[in-house]
Simulated scan of single mutants.
Amino acid sequence: MQGRVHSTESFGSADGPGVRFIVFLQGCPMRCRYCHNPDTWALDRGTLMEPAELLDQAERYRSYWGREGGITVSGGEALLQPEFVAELFEAAHARGINTCLDTSLAPFTRQQPFYQAWERIMAACDLVLADIKHIDPAEHRALTGHSNENILDALRWLSDAGFPVWIRHVLVPGITDNDEHLRRTADFIKTLSNVRRVDVLPYHSLGVYKWDELGIPYTLRDTQPPSKERVENAERILGAAVSGLPQA
């Protein structure tokens, strides 16, 4: 099987534990207003590669991974190519390679044929990095162009199955840094039994040039990164969902 690969990164240090080889797959169903990789959206681009090709490339750097490192499959949205991810992860486990899935969970459904591939992926997945873009359904759609109903359902599925998850939340001033919404997000996370970590990712505009090159209007051009105080506030509120500390 071949997958459409946008690019790879040899020494990723922010996409799972340890040093990791990152595979960015092509294609994404979301249109997040702050996306820093809009060049990954199109489904018909990228380089066709087989799992063995990617793993052979990844293993050149295996000596740098340490005990916790491995490969992370990201995007775009990796779950748009579920059969390929399943085959890649199965082949990685056969080589004794730790696997991590970085996903928005937007393609998740309990319907076939996706669900069969999803179960295969999870059987060979060691960690899921999952985004909660926005807890409010209407605000989520305004931010991403996509519903969050199936995304929250996927997180419940992962909790019921006991798969370890790290939650990520991009903090965008005026959009995702509202204290009420942060507390609602924390309340949801508290219902999950498998969340090991919550990361607050400050909004940045480093990818704006890609929007300009693609001729896509960037609607957050005047939005500034959040202040240190607002980042720390979000970390207190969301971190309490995992640590059990009192909320801010």
Rank of each mutant, 00 (worst) to 15 (best):
R141Y: 14
F89A: 05
V172P: 01
S227R: 05
G76P: 07
S74Q: 04
I237D: 03
D136L: 11
R156S: 12
D212W: 10
M30T: 06
D56F: 08
A248K: 07
I71R: 05
N37D: 09
L129D: 06
R183T: 14
R230L: 11
P217G: 07
K133R: 05
D56R: 10
S193I: 06
N178K: 13
R183D: 12
R20W: 12
G162I: 09
N98E: 05
L43D: 11
S227C: 04
C100K: 04
A92C: 10
L43R: 15
L201N: 05
H140G: 06
H6E: 04
G27I: 04
R196K: 15
E50T: 13
S243A: 03
K228F: 12
Q26E: 11
E149S: 13
D131Q: 11
T185N: 13
F188D: 03
P225W: 13
L171K: 04
H6D: 02
R31C: 12
V198Q: 01
Q224V: 11
G75S: 11
F89G: 02
Q26A: 07
V200F: 02
F21N: 06
A78Y: 09
V19S: 07
I132Y: 01
S74D: 03
T176E: 03
W211V: 03
A154Y: 04
H6L: 10
V73M: 06
F108T: 01
I135H: 03
E83N: 12
L105E: 04
A240D: 02
E87L: 07
V165G: 00
G27L: 05
I167M: 14
A186E: 05
E235A: 06
P113K: 02
W211F: 13
A117V: 01
V195R: 00
G207M: 06
T99S: 08
D187G: 10
